Amino acid sequence: MSKVDLIFNRVSRILEVFMIVIFALLVLDVLFQVFSRYLLGTSFTWTEEFARFALIWMTILGAAYLNGKKEHLSMDFLYQKFSETNKRKASILIEVLIFLFALIVMVIGGLNLVYTTLHLEQLSGTLRIPLGYVYAIMPFSGFLIMCFSIYHISNFLKNKNIE
C-alpha cells in the first residue's frame, strides 16, 4: 500500500469518526429537546438550531466521504455498456467534472459565502455564533472532494482495470 493510499484511508477514517460524533450529538440534542418539552414542560430554542447546523455539517461531510469511497449515487446503465478503455475515459471525465464542481461551487463559492457572512458579522439566531463558521464546512468539504478526485484520477491512470 502506497503512502498516498495510507493518507486516503486515514482521512476517510477521520471523516467517519467525525460524522459519527456529529450524528451522536444530533441524536442527543433531539432527545434532550423531546425530554425537555414533554417531561420538563419547557422548550429550549437552541436545540433546534444546533440540530439544523449538525445536519448541515453531516450532510456536506457525508457527500465528501461518499465521493472518496466512490459510493455516491450514480446511474451506470450506459456506463456498464462501455469497453474498458471507454470506462476509464468516462471515469476520468466524471472525476474532472466533479473536481471542477467542487472547485467552483463548493470552494470558491463557499469561501465567498464564508467571507461575506464573517465580514457582515452575521450571527445565528439563537446560538449567536458567526454563520461563517457554520458555512465553513462547504469549502472544506469541497477541498476534500477535489483531493479525492485527484486520488481517483491517479488510480484510473495507474491501473488497467476500472472498479
Rank of each mutant, 00 (worst) to 15 (best):
P130D: 10
V21R: 07
C147M: 00
V34Y: 12
S141G: 01
I104Y: 06
R10M: 14
L40W: 09
A136Y: 07
S91K: 05
L131G: 01
F101H: 05
D29V: 04
H152D: 06
A90V: 03
E84K: 10
D76F: 02
H152Y: 03
M138P: 06
K3Y: 13
F77M: 12
G41D: 03
S12R: 05
V96W: 15
V17I: 13
G41E: 01
F23W: 06
V114L: 05
A54R: 05
S36N: 12
I137G: 02
G125A: 13
R10D: 14
A63Y: 01
L78T: 04
R128W: 14
K69T: 07
T45H: 14
I104A: 09
L28V: 15
Y79E: 00
F101C: 03
V114P: 01
F35A: 14
Y79H: 00
Y79Q: 01
V4F: 14
L118S: 09
S2H: 07
D29P: 03
R88D: 04
F82Q: 01
V17H: 10
T85V: 13
A64Q: 00
S83M: 00
L97M: 11
D29A: 06
T116E: 11
L97S: 07
L97H: 06
V17L: 11
E49R: 02
M106R: 03
S124H: 05
L131W: 01
L111N: 10
T126K: 12
F8C: 03
K87D: 02
K69D: 05
P130S: 12
L144F: 01
T117F: 08
G41Y: 02
V105F: 10
L25W: 10
I98V: 15
M19Q: 08
K81R: 13
I145P: 02
E84P: 12
N9W: 13
S12Y: 01
D5H: 08
E163Y: 12
T85N: 14
T47V: 04
